[in-house]
Each structure stands twice: as C-alpha cells, then as structure tokens.
Design a protein around this nucleic acid. Structure first.
Lengths: 146, 146
DNA sequence: GCTGGCGTTGACGTCCGGGGCAAGGTCTAC
DNA sequence: GTAGACCTTGCCCCGGACGTCAACGCCAGC
C-alpha cells in the first residue's frame, strides 16, 4: 500500500510518516516511480509507535519496540530493551506525578490563603501580607531537556 | 539600577529581562543614554514572575499577578484575576496528574505482563501474545496546544 | 488532453523561554 | 587615552513533533 492508505489506516498523516522515515524509524521500500510502498507489517510497526506515542512516550523511546518487532518477535515489548524503556518511563512518570502533586498542593494552599485574605480584606481592616513563597523548591521547573 | 544588577539580584539573566520587556511583562524606564532603569518595585515584580515560573506557570499566566502588583495591591494574588489563574492552574494540575497516574498504572501493568511473558517464554513454551492496548483513551497525548 | 487526486522533496512556521553572538555605544578607573 | 565592564539592538539557534505551503511528477477517468 502507499503512504496515504497507510496514514488513513493508522489514523495519522502522510507528513508524520515521512517524518518517521526521516528519523529512520519507519523506513519504506520504493516502487519504480519513487512512491513509498508499505505492507501489513509496517502497519503493525506504525500502530506500535502510535500506541506508545499516545501514552506519552517520545519518538526515540518507541525505537526499541519497533526494532523488536522488526526482529521478528511476537510483540514490541518482547525484548529487554523495551522493558527497560517501560521501567524508565515508569520512574519518570512517578517523579513527574510527585512533583506536580507537590506543586498542586502548594497552589491549593496559596489559593485558600488568598481567598481568605480577600474575604477578610474587604470587610475588615487590611493588614495581611504574604505571597507564594519564593521557595526555590522542586517546582516543575518547566520540562527540562532530560 | 540597571539591567545587569537586576538580573543578578533576581537570579536571572539580562536576556530574560529583555525578553520579558519584549512581551510587555516588565517594562523599563530609560535613562538619557538609553539604558534600562529599574527600581526596587521592579525587583518585586520580577520576583513574582520568577516564583510563579518556578511553580510551572506560563509567562502569560503571571501577567495578572504582575498587573495586580503594579496596581498597588499588597500582593500579586490580591486580585480576582490572579485567583482565577490559581483556580485554573489547580484544575489543570489535577487533570494532568490524573492522566499521568492512569498512564503510569497502565505502563506498570504492561511491564508486569511483559516480564511474566519473558520469564514464561524462556523456559516453557512460547504462546503468550499481547501488547500495550491500542486503547485510544486519555493518554497524555503530548501537550496539546490548548 | 485535461482535470483531480495522489505522490515527491524541500523549506519554513509553530510553541515556549530564552541562549549566544556580533557590532557598536557608554561609562568608570587608571 | 585607553582598557574593561557594562549597555544597546538585532539576528539566528535550541528541541519535539509535526503543520503548511510550494512546485513539481505520476496516473486514472472522461
């Protein structure tokens, strides 16, 4: 099948498939006229990539799964390298969740305090003071390039 | 004070301060020779921005806090607009955490399954089959442009 | 032979928060 | 008078995962 059909059947776009090929992730055979030619196996590889992507895996992280399938294994996660990616992602998710949860609690506390101050400030006398503590603690810090 | 001193005192860089100014977030007076001139109040504004940034707020999300301080309020979160940002961020964090937690559990389950299969596949007979379910559910889906 | 729908490559835009560098102006100290 | 530290603007660069043209080739149907 050609690129358009593969894209449709996998629920993605031709641009994405060309991008994957440019990354060496999903190489394609070529027909005489230069068109990319794919088969059912490629569809399987692509579905593996897309599934992992949907779960938040980066493109590079899907590579071991794809290579595992290409090597003829029954599933993309039948290889040790894939399991390692699972484990790393698990640790990463745990860390991110913990960090976000801490930030969430901090923000919730600030919101509660600020609401109290607003309620007290309008009727009573204005004297409260405080802000989100300049606590240089473990904020999300914006997704680091790690 | 000039830009270099402000940057040092706030623990950031001159590049960042110019960037903030280009975004209209932290405007600066100018001296006769064209140098940017800041005062202690600007340092306060900047600290507010940096604190929120450290907690994962986007630059635009810090704007209400800055404007609140500029309007003369005691704290950046003394204004309703700031409280709204707190609430929105809280809801966003809750959603993200729930999503990541669900993904985490899914990945953990897949890892456990794959490890079992690997252990069973080596000694016994190879017959298992399964992958990370192509569940089109609520994966992180990668930060959508929302 | 002409339109329409595929396909090709290449290059640039997006979002975010800046980093890095160049060429030049300005101020202070020696 | 000159070194060095500071300031100015302007421009291109990063990464991730593509989107969006542009300009062209190929092929089927009518």
């Amino acid at each position: 099948m050609r690129i358009g059909e593969l894209a449709r059947r996998a629920g993605t776009t031709t641009r994405t498939l060309r991008y994957y090929e440019s990354r060496g992730l999903l190489p394609a055979r070529r027909t005489g006229n230069g068109y990319r030619e794919y088969d059912e196996e490629d569809l399987r590889l692509l579905r593996q990539i897309r599934t992992l992507q949907d779960f938040g895996f980066g493109l590079e992280e899907t590579r071991p799964f794809v290579e595992c399938l290409q090597a003829g294994h029954p599933a993309g996660d039948s290889c040790p390298a894939s399991l390692e990616v699972y484990r790393a992602k698990l640790a990463e998710l745990d860390a991110v969740v913990a960090r976000l949860q801490a930030v969430r609690d901090e923000v919730a506390a600030q919101l509660a305090r600020a609401e109290l101050e607003a309620a007290a400030g309008l009727p009573g006398g204005p004297e409260p003071r405080c802000e989100l503590a300049p606590h240089p603690g473990p904020g999300p810090g914006r997704p680091d390039p790690t």
